[in-house]
Design a protein around this nucleic acid. Structure first.
Lengths: 242, 242
DNA sequence: GCAAAATCTTTACAGTGTAAAAATTGCGAC
DNA sequence: GTCGCAATTTTTACACTGTAAAGATTTTGC
């Protein structure tokens, strides 16, 4: 994982140069508890600052660049500072994934509520699923590709379970039946697995660039959205308006 | 990536102890060019030995344990030996992925040829897809999850393109039409994307343990295979025998 | 106001990838 | 045959990484 970039060296050198003199302007000084004006040894809300820094690093350098030390640098604190708030890298990544799931859920719910017909609701939610991943590929990677997730953390567990519940509810609605919380028929389970597999598989393949071979063979610049729409309409019982 | 396992230390210590004395029995001495009996400085076929070692490491320690140095240790050579054969970690992983794709293709072709009816061929291939991933989760991870793949390498490009060609051919057959090599209708593209997304998505979710929530809600120990079968039969035009 | 707890920094260590130099061996020209 | 060059392997070095432990600083409870 040794990065060959020159920028990191520069950053590190700057941080080291900065070290001896601890002046006011050199700290971000996000929020403070009581007094205002000088730089605190205690950050005030480092936990939140680290999560925001992590998101920036993720968007900028991708999943491979999301390291504990890089996040600490981005937040302007020592490399060991995150330990107290997240334990280890798994902890930080898990909390970040929880945030991602919450954003993800919000986008899906908004899409669902933008339509009235059950089938159209499903279509809109699926498109929102893919759109979220395209807009936040790093986050999607953290949520679905990272090997370092700790689902025993309540925040992550709750957020991901909410996503699953939304999916189940959508399928139930499109089938116009009630789905029990703790028991499924094989038919119901298959419908849920089908919907999720279809959308998740498409998203993964798309983000990995494995659909370019297909897209290139389509008429002059057909977008991935169009392919997704065609794929979904062929998989749905009766797409209204087709 | 600092591992906390004690075993690695032991391994390293042993390797270091082993270093000064270079006796015959201490080298695997796989294949040799001419003379037989003593241990060569040149391995003879280190490239192949490294790939086999990599597969062992992958099966034993998972994707996270697949490091250049671990592979070199497993093969009994210095940590820099792989460089000459693969360049860097990306090179090794890419060649390993190519091997995985070839095994993968063989399994899919065998499944396809085990059936006669086009739809059943598709079903059998899909099941072979998931079965391969379940039998070789590490390999599947290298092929589809690793961020370090270099598709400019001919071996990997050819093997993965063969996989895609097999998929396209299967879809064409099940639709009972010929699919051109360099142009697709939106309908055809959607059918290909649908088949691949469905199977790949299911596989990914299954390997990540994200389907356990569904499987647990099914009647007493329904297997993932059964869920897969139900999912596929609901997605296919006319499953014969249902 | 002061001791304890919380928070952050320093220091240290084992592991990683990768580059470069040194060592060893195989091979072809002669 | 042997000599030199090229291929292969090892050694050494460096910049990263995660994580643990100890020290420094500030907040907070009493």
């Amino acid at each position: 994982m040794a990065k060959t970039s020159r920028e990191n060296k520069v950053v590190r050198t700057v941080a080291r140069t900065r070290k001896p003199a601890r002046v006011a302007a050199e700290r971000p000084a996000m929020r403070r508890r009581k007094s205002a004006g000088d730089t605190p040894y205690h950050h005030g809300d480092l936990r939140e600052a680290l999560l925001q820094a992590a998101e920036r690093v993720l968007e900028r350098d991708g999943l491979a660049g999301l390291t504990l030390r890089a996040v600490a640098r981005e937040a302007g604190v020592s490399h060991a500072a995150p330990t107290h708030h997240f334990g280890d890298l798994t902890g930080l990544v898990s909390e970040l994934a929880a945030i991602g799931f919450r954003m993800f859920n919000a986008a899906m719910n908004a899409a669902d509520e933008s339509e009235t017909h059950p089938v159209m609701k499903g279509l809109a939610s699926a498109k929102a699923y893919v759109a979220y991943a395209q807009a936040h590929p790093g986050m999607y990677g953290v949520m679905f590709r990272s090997a370092r997730l700790d689902y025993s953390r309540p925040s992550l567990r709750e957020a991901s379970e909410a996503a699953f519940a939304g999916l189940t509810g959508g399928v139930a609605e499109s089938r116009q039946e009630k789905i029990s919380k703790d028991s499924l028929s094989l038919d119901q389970a298959a419908a849920i697995a089908r919907a999720w597999s279809l959308v998740h598989g498409f998203t993964t393949l798309l983000l990995d660039g494995r659909l370019t071979g297909i897209l290139e063979r389509l008429p002059e610049g057909t977008s991935a959205d169009k392919l997704l729409d065609a794929m979904l309409r062929g998989a749905v019982p009766r797409p209204p308006g087709a």
